[in-house]
Design a protein around this nucleic acid. Structure first.
Length: 510
RNA sequence: GGUCCGUUCGUCUAGGGGUUAGGACAGUAGAUUUUCAUUCUACCAACAGGGGUUCGAUUCCCCUACGGACUACCA
């Protein structure tokens, strides 16, 4: 009978989580939800040198922002706590000992200098595969070469050592990857990886296998950069006697730079002008700030939808998916093998789609925030709603409400010179003054009335709409872009409309 | 260098032994909006190359090229 699905996202707290990591978390989450399973968060902090303060909080906040809920793990708790590997340190030693006892691992006493010397020697001799392996281990200082009593003496003397995996010399290792099919690697191309470091901390390889086993992980969904070490992991499951419950592997394609080639990296975002992080991040070491999608005005649903499509698609024409719909549609089988380049145009497009799909009322807070940021007093709820309704098809990001709609709140201080030169003249000016006066008469203030009064005025002055509309827009907004002018006047109100026309006439008359 | 993974429009991708190789983003043009944006319509644009297998390969196999990952007491 199949075990209940349990997957994990296991980042290292070495800095901000970049979008490749977010996508890995997302696919794990979708898979867990789809199968009614559990999503775990485990922090892989076995390298104390690379620990970055704040990184763990960042990771959890980023996942929360994306709507990726953790069922069990760091920050949430659960039956397998602790979920931080540094706090699980005492648990790993016994498994290393088990490997040692079974002859699948050995002590190695080589100093860093001795290791360097070996590598140089192998390089100089042009050895095709220079590694600490079944062949070279015979020339090094370890428990496969040293007499037993000497090994014991060294250990008793507290000599620093590591524990290495004893990789068999000639063996074919094969496993089935859910995305790539059968992967076959010969053991001779593997090296005797360090399992336990001299500080007593396990390396990724050991900690990962032990924790996945103890936490009853059924599917390991991770980035392709792990594919080369998967055979080692398979071997470790076998050596530890855990083959029967070994998780299924699925190695996700990489996310590439938008230009050129290579793995997407932190620098690319700054260079190309788009975020590579979900949230803004300030490096505590250097103080360097990297922009985030959240702060850039991206809606989390849009960001997640976009990310889901980088390396996966449902096989249908549908592109807009809520998280629930993604859960329904997602299958590992439809994850592609080839890497994907990041496309900033497409994220923007997704954001536009999501922004427009929101009810006007949901967008009002964005407008109010944008206004507050620019020291504009909050308008009436009615006016805010009207502006949002008029502007929502014209913006891709919340912050654009300010750039695109500020003339609803601030009178223009300058007027587009090209239009003034071409369209503004004493006749137009006179008609506008007259129009402003007519607006003073009591009347219902709506688009039909405004249009009627404007038409009347134009007839009286023997002018056509084409001759004055651009000039009128410039008088009202200062520029020549924007939504329907009559609708704009309606939002502005009679008094403001009149004031702006009179100001423009006064400014442009001479 | 070695090992492994990959290769369909500029980008994300669908497809699959016989198709006008489909969609989306981007780009271009036109229509609508007397503006801009939106919207609509159209256009542009791809099976890396070479060998097989086959009546027929973009699809299956092999090779080459190219790209990438990995090759730490980092994950």
């Amino acid at each position: 009978m199949p075990r209940p699905v349990r997957v994990r996202f296991a980042p290292s707290p070495t800095g901000a989580l970049h979008i490749g990591g977010v996508r890995t978390a997302l696919y794990n989450y979708l898979f867990a939800r789809k199968h009614g399973g559990k999503m775990l968060l485990r922090i892989e902090d076995t390298d104390q040198n690379r620990f970055v303060p704040g990184a763990e909080d960042y990771i959890r906040e980023a996942l929360t922002w994306c709507g990726i809920q953790i069922d069990e793990g760091q920050g949430v708790g659960g039956p397998h706590a602790p979920y931080r590997q540094s706090e699980r340190k005492p648990m790993y030693r016994q498994y290393a000992d088990q490997l040692l006892a079974a002859g699948h691992a050995y002590y190695a006493f080589d100093t860093p200098e001795e290791l360097d010397a070996m590598r140089e020697r192998l390089a100089a001799a042009k050895v095709p595969n220079p590694q600490y392996n079944a062949i070279t281990r015979g020339q090094m200082r370890n428990s496969t070469t040293l007499p037993e009593d000497e090994v014991q003496a060294l250990l008793a003397a507290g000599t620093p050592y590591v524990i290495r995996a004893k990789i068999p010399r000639k063996e074919e290792i094969r496993f089935q990857d859910q995305i790539r099919g059968w992967v076959v690697v010969h053991s001779s191309s593997l090296d005797d990886k360090v399992l336990m470091k001299s500080d007593g901390m396990p390396t990724y390889h050991l900690a990962n296998i032990v924790d996945d086993h103890l936490m009853e992980i059924t599917h390991v969904i991770r980035g392709e950069e792990w594919l080369p070490s998967a055979p080692l992991h398979v071997l470790l499951y076998r050596f530890l006697g855990w083959e029967a419950t070994m998780p299924e592997f699925a190695h996700l394609p990489l996310l590439l730079k938008p230009d050129g080639t290579g793995k997407l990296s932190k620098r690319d975002g700054d260079r190309l002008g788009f975020p590579v992080f979900p949230l803004r991040w300030q490096d505590p070491e250097t103080g360097e700030v990297s922009s985030g999608y959240r702060e850039g005005g991206y809606l989390p649903d849009a960001f997640v939808n976009f990310l889901a499509f980088l390396g996966w698609n449902p096989g249908t024409a549908q592109e807009i998916f809520s998280m629930d719909e993604l859960v329904q549609a997602f299958t590992i089988e439809r994850v592609s093998k080839s890497p994907a380049k990041f496309d900033q145009h497409k994220v923007r497009w997704f954001n536009e789609q999501y922004l427009r799909a929101k009810p006007d009322a949901d967008l009002v807070p964005y407008l109010l925030t944008a206004l507050a940021e620019n020291q504009i007093p909050a308008p009436s709820p009615e006016k805010a709603l009207q502006v949002v309704a008029l502007m929502k098809e014209r913006v891709a990001f919340p912050h654009e409400f300010w750039r695109e709609a500020q003339y609803f709140f601030v009178a223009p201080t300058s007027y587009d010179e090209g239009v003034v030169a071409k369209k503004w003249n004493p006749a137009v000016s006179a008609a506008f003054t007259d129009f402003a006066t007519r607006l003073d008469q009591p009347q219902p203030w709506n688009q039909a009335e405004i249009k009627r009064v404007l038409d009347e005025t134009l007839v009286a002055h023997n002018l056509k709409a084409g001759q004055v509309m651009q000039a009128l827009r410039v008088a009202i907004t200062g520029g020549l872009m924007g939504p329907d002018l009559i609708a704009t006047l309606e939002v502005l109100g009679a008094a403001e409309t009149r004031a702006r026309i009179e100001a423009a006439v006064a400014a442009l008359l001479g």
